[in-house]
Design a protein around this nucleic acid. Structure first.
Lengths: 127, 127
DNA sequence: GTAACTGCAAAATATTTGCATCCTT
DNA sequence: AAGGATGCAAATATTTTGCAGTTAC
């Protein structure tokens, strides 16, 4: 069950590290020079999430995005209290620093936060 | 372009109104006595959203849920600031009253909020 | 050498589109 | 009867599973 180090994984890990924000499967494919199999990419991403290396965001377009958050943003890969912003124009998903406050009736146990704001990001808005 | 009243639409509308919370396509199908076509249901739901009658939630399972929120919850069908909670056990999506506070860097324009907390709901937790 | 990783094919899931037919107005 | 709604078939999109071949350790 112990993981092995492969070129494909390293490449994708670097892609995610270089990106500030989250990448979708498509986004990763687009950035890859060497063509990796669709399935391999999915499996690598799922392994990253399993290992707590990356976290998975399901955006409001129903697709999965993956991100490696900076130290101060990821304390627990299961519960991310920070925000994500998806730009409907450039389709980029960013991790936005910020606190989220909410209150739930008693008895609820939250395992995962998924907070997506969507609209126009500052870059696209400026154009 | 004007809408016509049909039995199918009325049935689904009533289902949504009776439900406190959101229903997925599957959830609606399960509650239907008379079998409606899969596509028809999707189209009816999309019309409801278009007309501002219901709103669409994309949950963290990547699926769409539809809900008719109470008066005090829906001021604008494009931007819902309230929370949703998806129970991973009973798979129900609820609209939870509550405020969400966040702060974004300048230049961002938010058109849509999609806030899903997931975990165990109070009913399932009590079991 | 063994078990993990990869790639190809195929399946599973969720949603949309085309088109002929039916039904509301 | 005009055109919006429905149903069936098929397409699209995204992600997962099975399995044989390859590779890291």
């Amino acid at each position: 069950m112990s993981r092995r180090q492969t070129k494909s994984q390293t490449i994708i890990l670097h892609l995610l590290q270089q990106e500030q924000g989250a990448l979708s499967h498509d986004g990763i494919t687009a950035k890859l020079e060497k063509g990796l199999d669709r399935v391999t990419i999915y499996r690598i991403l799922n392994r990253f999430v399993e290992d707590g290396l990356a976290h998975r965001i399901v955006a409001d377009d129903g697709r999965q995005y993956f991100a490696i958050c900076p130290e101060d943003c990821c304390h627990d890969h299961e519960a991310h209290g920070h925000l994500h912003f998806r730009c409907v124009i450039c389709d980029r998903v960013e991790c936005v620093p910020g606190e989220v406050g909410y209150r739930l009736p008693p008895g609820y146990q939250v395992n995962n936060h998924n907070i997506i704001l969507s609209g126009n990001c500052n870059t696209c808005n400026a154009k």
